[in-house]
Design a protein around this nucleic acid. Structure first.
Lengths: 242, 242
DNA sequence: CGTTGTGTTGAGCCGAATCAACCCCGGTGG
DNA sequence: CCACCGGGGTTGATTCGGCTCAACACAACG
């Protein structure tokens, strides 16, 4: 939240109080099904999830990844859900209803600003993903994707400017990037062989971020100044591992 | 609008009054640049446009098409534009500001409902497009894409259940579908050879809609009952050709 | 100690891109 | 009136990125 808007102490207190009503999911569990008519608004406290759609023949397209600090169902629009949401790791969520109520009542202008900033952010991620899928090579896609994750996780206080956790199988990356598992594997190997990154047991290190950004035409979004992020996050999610 | 929500006579009158302040664009003209901080909200009265992004090396990805009756900039969110909008044909637009004002003032509940329904619709189109790009073959992509256009144009009163105008070059379809021009050409030829569709001078006829839908796993969205659409549209856009 | 999921590697194939012509048609200007 | 030109569509030859199929290594786990 702090990465999106200044937030008052009272608002932070409200956010902390959410942690009381946690829900837990195991990897593979479905939080939202496509077509659901209304879902509980939540924040992700720890773990990763994704939005996806599955074709009748089993092909799958992953639209986006939900990381700790991200929300789902925050817009409270009535219509049917357009994609399902699935836990990729063990997952902890908090009910976001109190926040939405406070915002609606006008009691939390800082959080209101933050929530308003979320949608454009998600939209941007979606469009970037679409460019990857439609007009980039496998090599560019993987590089771009990892740079995006690095950025998001750093903002979330879960990584630094080159190292971050990556609890995704190559199958999941393949389904996100529109590639086959085998080809994701080979592309990652090429990037490692070229000493652009390292990948070991769920931890990724971008050795040459500049060069990767060049390869993938990755334009880093401007950093919001003056928000002590890692501190803000550990407030809320001290038990988060990724 | 009527396809999204019941609209009162007074509201229709308001819509009609918009046609007074038209703007015209020629094909290729840019209505919105990526990064623009605020744009005039508009409805498209006639002609086609698209949202797109261009990579530094010239590759282009088209995200969506804007058809007569569609709007842009209706959300009035402050942030920078995430994609540019370019006219694909000669284009007429109307300033949508009066509608947004009326809605904001609470004077147009029907239009408010309609506007609220627009975003999810666009989101759905975006996700469908992403599935095409990431997980469908060229053959499936083209079929799915044409079915989607058929549906949208029929709802807009600009086509019937198998025939509709298609003022797009194969280059534009290629940039939307993530394919090369040559391959779009060959795929269209295959579809014609198989007597699934006809394509002549800007008019498309889907000869076997069912079979096409089967090929592309196209799920037609449910039709809103009881909205006399073609009538509604010719009210506002009697000069529209496509 | 099997089993299962994930990563890795090789061989061969195929869908789609690229490159390069060529055609047709509608301007447009001499 | 006609030669020229440029954009869009079409076609063939060739290349290549990425997929499929298949096998195997390895670790976690029951």
């Amino acid at each position: 939240m702090r990465s999106l808007s200044a937030v008052s102490d009272a608002e932070l207190e409200l956010l902390r109080s959410l942690a009381e009503r946690r829900e837990r999911f195991v990897a593979g569990e479905e939080l939202v099904s496509e077509g659901d008519m209304s879902i509980r608004p939540r924040f992700i406290l720890s773990g990763w999830a994704c939005r996806q759609r599955v074709l009748p023949d089993g092909r799958r397209q992953i639209f986006s990844f939900l990381l700790p600090g991200d929300g789902l169902g925050l817009d409270r629009r009535p219509g049917p859900e357009l994609s399902s949401v699935v836990a990729l790791t063990a997952l902890e969520t908090a009910d976001a209803t109190p926040v939405l109520n406070a915002v609606q009542a006008g009691h939390a202008p800082g959080l209101a600003r933050a929530l308003a900033a979320i949608e454009p952010q998600e939209q941007k991620l979606l469009l970037d993903h679409m460019v990857r899928l439609g007009r980039q090579t496998a090599y560019e896609r993987v590089a771009h994707f990892l740079l995006e994750l690095q950025r998001r996780l750093e903002v979330a206080g879960l990584g630094d400017n080159q190292r971050f956790p990556l609890p995704l199988t190559q199958e999941i990356m393949a389904d996100a990037l529109g590639l086959s598992i085998v080809h994701v594997n080979r592309t990652l190997q090429q990037l490692r062989r070229e000493r652009l990154l390292e990948l070991r047991s769920g931890v990724t290190i971008l050795l040459q971020r500049e060069q990767l950004a060049d390869i993938a035409d990755y334009r880093a979004p401007p950093v919001r100044p003056g928000a002590p992020l890692s501190a803000a996050r550990s407030d809320l999610e001290d038990s988060a591992q990724y």
